[in-house]
Design a protein around this nucleic acid. Sequence first.
DNA 1: TGACTTGATGACCTTGAGGTCATCAGGAGA
DNA 2: TCTCCTGATGACCTCAAGGTCATCAAGTCA
Lengths: 136, 136
Amino acid sequence: MLAQTTGYAIQALGFLATQSTPVLIRNVAKATGIPPSYLAKIMHLLARKGIVRTKRGTRGGVQLAPGAEKLSFYEVAVLMDDPVVAMRCMLGTEPCSPNRNCPCHEFWSKQRERELAMLKRKSIAHMARFLKRRSK
Amino acid sequence: MLAQTTGYAIQALGFLATQSTPVLIRNVAKATGIPPSYLAKIMHLLARKGIVRTKRGTRGGVQLAPGAEKLSFYEVAVLMDDPVVAMRCMLGTEPCSPNRNCPCHEFWSKQRERELAMLKRKSIAHMARFLKRRSK
DNA sequence: TGACTTGATGACCTTGAGGTCATCAGGAGA
DNA sequence: TCTCCTGATGACCTCAAGGTCATCAAGTCA
């Protein structure tokens, strides 16, 4: 499970990838259903990381930075400091280890591997294609 | 991922399943590394659900209710109101649906299925055997 | 230049999980 | 009965995630 904030970021970036001109944050919010003020915060963060370009004033908005559509969900999660990136055990917050282990350890390792692989496989471009198909 | 509290419950129940006489909550806490005051709360909750029996006063303690070692991790999670039981989407807190969907939906459904199957397969008795093996 | 539009920024709020603590109440035994 | 041991109970604390809001600052354009 990704943090909700990471999910928001991926959705917003995916939407921006379907647009070729700057879009107002409030319009991104409308299109995705993300709370506008909160989205503004997320966009600002992504701007500082160089993922989006922002422009203030009339005819301003946010736009995907060139090449950013190649970013994987995993890379976005890392940028957002998503806890999904950290190694944890199924029965708690600490990671399993040879000395502190749990009966689900083996299963959970495989499960996590699959999840991370998927996050690395999917990109903003995938998200954009998905949104385009859906809007048809 | 189970909530930490559910993990605590499973560990504590597993430990109790290795014992044949009542154990003081503080000793369960010592054996499992769970914060004693918090464990007292969890034990109280499990007692109200009929999973453990408690006894106050000298030579008191908590003890697994007969048959409780057959409980699956899943059933414990349900008793603890663990959010793992709820259907959610990978990109947020709402569930995916035919109209509100996401590009990870198919993957995530399978992933969740595997997780729930595992939680239903493993029982307190498994946990107990695991703890016994480890303490050797 | 001045008005307007829009993102930037930081203070603050809300909620739930996890956790502590003081106090109450029931059971055992001298 | 009195005392001590132990779980029961509820008030409270802490922290992080998610979210709101007021205000500031940078662009655009008449």
